[in-house]
Amino acid sequence: MTSPNTPSARRPASDYPPGSMAFPHRHLLGIAGLQPWEIEFLLDEAEQWVDLNRQATKHDDRLAGLTLINAFFENSTRTLLSFEIAGKRLGADVVNMHAAQSSVKKGETLIDTAVTLNSMRADAIVIRHGSSGAVQLIADKVGCPVLNAGDGTHEHPTQALLDALTIRRRKGQIAGLRVAICGDILHSRVARSNMICLSTLGADVRVAGPPALMPPAVESMGATPCRSFAEALDGADVVMMLRLQNERMQGQFIPSPREFRHLYGLTDAKLALAKPDALVMHPGPMNRGIEIDSHIADNVQRSAITDQVEMGVAMRMACLDVLTRRRRGVEGWA
């Protein structure tokens, strides 16, 4: 097993199309629609920021003078913090907008808010919103790059990218790995982005959850639905647990959290079905003792949960850097 600190093999720059052809997208709204080499390009770009973030002085000035607005219409701790730190480490002026304190509460429409942010001449806007498609709606109305930090139950692309980076660094590569994604698939934007991302990169993605929490047609996103947790875990290299999203449930989807744990909680006995060196992941925040037992989450040999948070900052720095290159007039991108 590769140690957590080993940077995975980067492709030489010559492997990628020149300049902006390597990532010819104005926004990052989802993983759907990205080519495998575009995903790998972003992962490779993130490696340098992993290195920088481990130094005593974690600063780069390439986004100096640019304004980054984090517009969060839904509560968040780690993603907001991660984007804020990413922006600041790259030298940007970072402003956070919390919907709870904003005119959104006074009935302003999403479009009006978007136009307002645009008029303030933001150079990049990071958006989280509780409704699927809301980020795309805003992206269509603003003149700067928009990064989706999670829209409803649709996508959470930077989470999938940081998960891919984490797996790649811990396992050396992604192609050929068996990845189990388990739990509340229906309400999970993380699951959607990860199914598409990891299957695009060549992993064998299996998903499992109680029937009411499994959406139909996951095959269309490159994943194989499993009839049971055990079937998904069998021989897995990576076990990705999802948070039970009670706040998105309208009606009863499972009888009780403890019954959910009984069937779909990651316990030692369940984890034993996966490969002995299987990596355990969780996008956070965790419901400890429900979808994952505490001692598994805290086992640094098996759990990559803190790595995921670390990779998150590097990954978001890479996304902010790449998406603002056109504005900054970087050669080949302007």
Binding site: S132, T153, H154, S220
Partner: peptide, 13 residues
């Protein structure tokens, strides 16, 4: 309606 589109878009179906 339940199906690939609704699942991909993450819409209540």
């Amino acid at each position: 309606t339940s199906g690939e589109m609704a699942t991909r878009l993450g819409l209540p179906q």
